[in-house]
Design a protein around this nucleic acid. Structure first.
Lengths: 142, 142
DNA sequence: TTGCGAAGTGGGACAAAGTGGGATAAAATA
DNA sequence: TATTTTATCCCACTTTGTCCCACTTCGCAA
């Protein structure tokens, strides 16, 4: 699979359609999974296998504990309920449902952010605010 | 079989009919099995094979204990008594009996939740309450 | 600069999905 | 049997999504 990187500022049209950067389009298949990020601040877009792998990875941290506990069953159910399969149209756009747009507060101006195995869709202003909170300088201090 | 995911808000009409999301309809046959969830908080909808597999799976956890014990016989009997076969009508809707509607406290506003091999039917408010109790943040703590 | 193709955007026309309700047939009650 | 009730079938309305085409912008090359 791909290695998605970069930030792209695109527009969501009146019908909720979002055209992907051509780099993303080349790296991904036409079948994608869109889900609300766990904290609800943006949307994640995966390929189907990537989504499954991501969910699984969330449950492997507790040292191999299998998903039998009722807490994990509920978490898994919620994660699965929030994902929606979508297909790209003939112009390479994906339709984002009204409920998902609302959940991530997406307006017209959005930012697509590559993050290795998936990309994220942010409201432009929200993304700018997020960037402002990240302190890169501390990486270079001694 | 299918891989049912996603959350869909639909309405139960005055006759107790429920239209399925087209994604579910594509993934399932017209013959379905509706049963009250063990805890009674919603309905489960399976394909016939899926229902059988689910019941069987419930009895495999006790470390290979076969269903010979009278307790298991009774449990199996009860589970089978609570399931009702239904067929989709020509518009892709399934009729939910009055008794099952009551059991799961289904009113007009319901939520269909995909969960891999089956989907669940929740009263909308009840589902929202359930979601609110699930803590996803703990999956991301270290 | 001009021409060309690819990328991003917008919108109209049509089809499908979800919903509601009336008419008819089957079942239940008296 | 007559009457009420329940369920099934069919049609219709409204909304949403899909498909297709067109316009614009940008970059690259002749």
């Amino acid at each position: 699979m791909a290695d998605l990187v970069g930030e792209y500022r695109h527009k969501l049209d009146a019908k909720g359609r979002l055209s992907l950067p051509s780099d993303f389009r080349k790296a991904l298949s036409k079948h994608l999974m869109v889900t609300i990020s766990p904290k609800g601040e943006c949307l994640y877009v995966f390929e189907p296998e990537g989504f499954s792998a991501w969910v699984s990875s969330l449950f492997e941290k507790d040292g191999g504990f299998k998903s039998s506990s009722s807490k994990h069953v509920a978490q898994r159910k919620l994660l699965n309920s929030r994902v929606k399969p979508v297909e790209l149209d003939n112009s390479g756009r994906l339709g984002i449902s009204a409920s998902q747009r609302e959940a991530a507060l997406l307006d017209k101006e959005v930012v697509l952010v590559g993050d290795t195995d998936h990309f994220e869709v942010w409201d432009a202003k929200r993304w700018d605010d997020f960037c402002a909170t990240v302190d890169l300088d501390s990486l270079f201090e001694d």
